[in-house]
Design a binder for these strands. Structure first.
Length: 416
RNA sequence: GUGGGUGUAGCUCAGCGGAUAGAGCGCCAGACUGUGGCUCUGGAUGCCGGGGGUUCAAAUCCCCUCACCCACCCCA
């Protein structure tokens, strides 16, 4: 026998039982987003590598060591998207959506790719549902995103969630803070881990959430961005907090929170559930990105929900649709019965049959195993009476259903 | 990328140098010829993750490799 081909490392199959739960969560999230006026956009999985280098940042871990990069047959240097905000902004500019509306609210859903080492809740192909508000500058837009997430999690029935929020400042704040931090750290670099030493040069802010103990103690003494934020950034942040307070959204400030994508400005946030350390959603403001990608100065913000994590954490039992199992006994009933059944199928009742010639007993066993309540049996006797024998597997109730009544019978099941 | 753990039947796992590799659950069949679940009886199924080595003998010991899990890192 040939060796079994298995799924590629970090990639996985989402089987029907799990897919059913995914779909339920997805449609709930979509409904909330739609209710806030967001519209769905579908963007490609493959983009030019440059897009992510410019947006996410060349020195970020995501771009530097986690991206799937390849050349196509036309020698284009491409990447599988590691996140979708850059793609959405690219599409927004490419199609001049800025000309059509002042505030553009978009959402997307689909797979992202990062070449991480796989483990629980971390896959190389993972799914995000994200939302972006492009064109909105004041903190009410930031708040809207957070409130949407809060709403989603309440609807899902998750009570023990909390947002961690920080401000990384506007462009000016960011640069002056980075400079200050760099200066502070450079003297102490020799006491810090290898990663941090390179971070100091390439991406200072990342040092802040280093987990190495020796680094942590140094970071404690480091200047805090809160002390450097300009009036505008401070006001933005305080207004945001006030709005969230009014909405009774559970959050806490986390001055160490720095996200791994360079485009963030001012507000950044993550959403965590109970004692789970992994964030299930994260986002923030990115007021420079649209401009950096060649568009006009445009404020924007967004978030993304990690669907794999979300679905692994909560598992609502979803009822299957009504299903009818049809049993044909003998060649003649199979021939005639299949035709009759196919003639009256509708979109609301699932009708399944095992056309195999097996004993009634084993057919019923199959139905039972699949937890199917309704069974129709067609054998010699029934054929003569132009009827199916209906059996309810739960109650044991049985009755004859005329061929001519079959369609109505299915309708009756729907309404029951 | 770093460190640790685990890969044996469809599933959960036992066996840890010795014979034809096991259990529970599941599956198939029969008892019950056209009525599932309960019970009883019988049956099928394994490149013991893959490759190499040590040995008279390897699922078992050693090396390599692949995959999964956990932690770090990073992130959603």
């Amino acid at each position: 026998m040939e060796k079994q081909i298995k799924s590629v490392r970090g990639m996985r199959d989402i089987l029907p039982d799990e897919t059913r739960r995914w779909k339920a969560l997805e449609s709930l999230i979509f409904r909330v987003l739609e209710s806030f006026g967001f519209e769905e956009i579908r963007v490609p999985i493959v983009e030019e590598l440059k897009l992510f280098q410019r947006s996410v940042g060349s020195f970020t871990d995501i771009v530097q060591k986690e991206m799937y990069v390849f050349k196509d047959r036309g020698d284009r240097v491409l990447a599988l998207r590691p996140e979708a905000t850059a793609c959405v902004v690219r599409a927004y500019l490419e199609h001049s959506l800025n000309e059509k509306k002042r505030i553009t609210r978009l959402y997307y859903s689909g797979p992202m790719f990062r070449y991480d080492r796989p483990q629980k809740d971390r896959y190389r192909q993972f799914y995000q549902i994200g939302a972006e508000i492009i064109g909105g500058q004041n903190p009410y837009f930031d708040a809207e995103l957070i409130i949407i997430l809060a709403k989603i999690f309440e609807k899902i029935g998750v009570a023990d969630y909390v947002f961690e929020i920080n401000s990384v400042g506007c462009n000016q704040c960011k640069t002056s803070y980075s400079a200050k931090l760099k200066q502070f750290l450079q003297n102490r670099a020799s006491h810090m881990c290898q990663d941090c030493q390179t971070r100091i040069e390439n991406n200072v802010l990342r040092v802040l959430d280093c987990k190495v103990v020796s680094c942590k103690s140094i970071i404690k003494e480091a200047p805090v961005i809160q002390d450097i934020l300009c009036q505008g950034c401070k006001a933005h942040q305080e207004t945001l907090y006030r709005i969230l307070d009014n909405h009774r959204v559970p959050y806490k400030e986390n001055w160490q929170l720095v996200r791994g994508l360079d485009y963030y400005t001012k507000t950044v946030f993550e959403l965590k559930i109970s004692n789970n350390d992994n964030a299930v959603a994260g986002g923030g403001r990115y007021d420079n990105l649209v401009h950096e990608l060649g568009g006009p100065e445009t404020a924007a913000c967004g978030f993304a929900i990690g669907m794999d994590r979300l679905c692994n954490m909560i598992s609502p039992e979803i009822k299957k649709d009504i299903t009818v199992f049809v049993v044909f006994l003998g060649e003649k009933s199979l021939q005639q019965g299949v035709k009759i059944v196919n003639g009256v199928r509708n979109d609301h009742v699932r009708i399944v049959a095992d056309y195999t010639d097996r004993s009634l007993k084993s057919h019923l066993k199959s139905a039972d195993r699949e937890d199917i309540q309704h069974v129709l049996i067609l054998g010699e006797n029934e054929l003569q009476q132009e009827s199916f024998l209906y059996r309810n597997m739960k109650s044991g109730y049985q009755t004859m259903v005329k061929f001519s009544e079959l369609s109505n019978f299915f309708k009756g099941l729907e309404n029951a």
